[in-house]
Amino acid sequence: MAREEVQVPRGSRALHVLARRERAWPRGDTDEGGTGGGTEVGTTTGSDPLTHPPRGRARAGTGDSGCPRGGTVLLEAGLGLDSTLWSPLLDLIDADRRLDPWRIIAPDRAGSGASAPAPDPRPLSSLVADLDAVVDTLGTGPLLLVGHSWGGTLVRLWCAAHPGSAAGTVLVDASYECGPEHHRAAGLGWLGRGADVLAADSLEALELSLGRGARASAHARTQEMRLFGTSLDLLASLESRGLAWMPPDSELVTTSRRHTRQHEVQRRFARDRGFTLRAADTPRHLVPLRDPATVLAALVDVLPAG
């Protein structure tokens, strides 16, 4: 299906979002044979203005016509990465009929990909506010959040700030406040924040970021690395006070590259919340590139039931 380039205003700047509009199903068709179409999404190429109904809280099911109701899937990339990370997953989603009714949106954080840079220094609250802007502008129906690496941390912070607003989440090899990368970051200062997370895939991550405003992307990465440890400290504080809300329908995708301590943190995190812990078929950290099929399987599992 066609993907569109959407600009979400954020004051004097704008956030670039890669979007795939939902595909309409023929009346009474809930299995095979759906057709193209769906709600138009505003683009940067002069199409009709963006229109959408208010974002709802109802869980997805089937309407009176028997057609499945969808919602919005938001894909949040890891530290220093952008929406191109999700290209293999988007290809699989396009071919999977179960996600036809769902709008898929993958934002570039400020300064990354095609998004305009944010003022420096940047507070952590600004990243959560950017997510708010994307969801409020493009979200419709139930919301599912997929976050890779530090993007998973941002997904958790957004959920904590908006209890009850997400129908499900998928955390893909996410960073955790008790993980080894956080302990190392505390000792190394902001320069070391996130280094352990991206070390095994640094060349591949660099290749993703080059060619789309390398200077701005490098600066955005530096801004985010300064906030990496702060974000995990905040989550630890929220957890200790019972304020780190997460939707009960959630899955964690992990890789064998993770340290023993990290695996234990992930197992405990999943066990304590009744979440599913799913192993990716790759030892590398960039799971959305290496094993998008496992990410898709996790996403399908958290689709709201009728």
Rank of each mutant, 00 (worst) to 15 (best):
R27C: 02
H263L: 13
D82A: 10
V253G: 00
S65P: 05
F275H: 08
G37P: 10
E4N: 06
V302N: 01
D201M: 07
Y176N: 01
I104W: 06
R184G: 07
R215D: 15
R21C: 02
R69Q: 13
S237C: 09
T30M: 01
D82M: 07
T294N: 07
A214L: 11
S240N: 07
L138C: 05
L75S: 04
H263S: 11
D272F: 07
V134M: 08
W25I: 00
L234R: 15
E177F: 11
V17I: 10
A110Y: 02
D233Q: 13
G33W: 10
L15K: 06
E22D: 15
L89A: 08
H285A: 04
I105D: 00
R97F: 06
L227A: 02
R156W: 06
S65F: 03
G28H: 13
G211R: 11
T72L: 10
T169G: 09
D272L: 12
L143V: 08
W25D: 02
V295A: 07
A174V: 06
G274V: 08
A95F: 04
D94S: 14
L198C: 07
E76P: 01
G71W: 06
R241W: 04
L81Q: 11
G42I: 04
P142W: 13
R271W: 10
D130N: 12
F269E: 04
A95W: 01
L234W: 04
S231T: 09
A244G: 03
G229A: 14
A24C: 12
L15E: 08
R57L: 14
S115H: 04
D48A: 15
V155P: 03
M1G: 03
G141Q: 05
G242K: 08
D132K: 09
D29R: 13
A185V: 04
I93D: 00
L144D: 04
D249C: 09
T255Y: 01
Q262W: 07
D82Q: 12
R278Q: 13
S149L: 08
L208P: 06
P54E: 15
G151P: 02
R98Y: 07
V300H: 05
L252Q: 00
I104F: 01
A160G: 01
G164S: 13
G80H: 07
Q262D: 15
S202K: 11
L127H: 11
L74P: 05
G164R: 12
G46K: 05
R257T: 12
R103E: 02
V8Q: 03
W86M: 05
V170Y: 04
W150M: 08
D301R: 14
P248W: 08
G242L: 09
H52C: 08
G192F: 06
R109F: 14
A214N: 00
S237I: 06
R23I: 02
V135S: 00
S65N: 14
V170W: 02
I105V: 15
G66V: 11
W190L: 00
R226H: 13
R97T: 12
A60F: 09
L232R: 04
R21P: 01
T230A: 13
Y176G: 02
G274P: 04
R156H: 06
S165V: 05
F275E: 03
A298M: 12
A205L: 10
T254D: 12
A166T: 08
E22W: 00
A110N: 04
L157D: 06
D108K: 05
P119D: 14
A236D: 13
G61D: 05
E32C: 05
T140H: 10
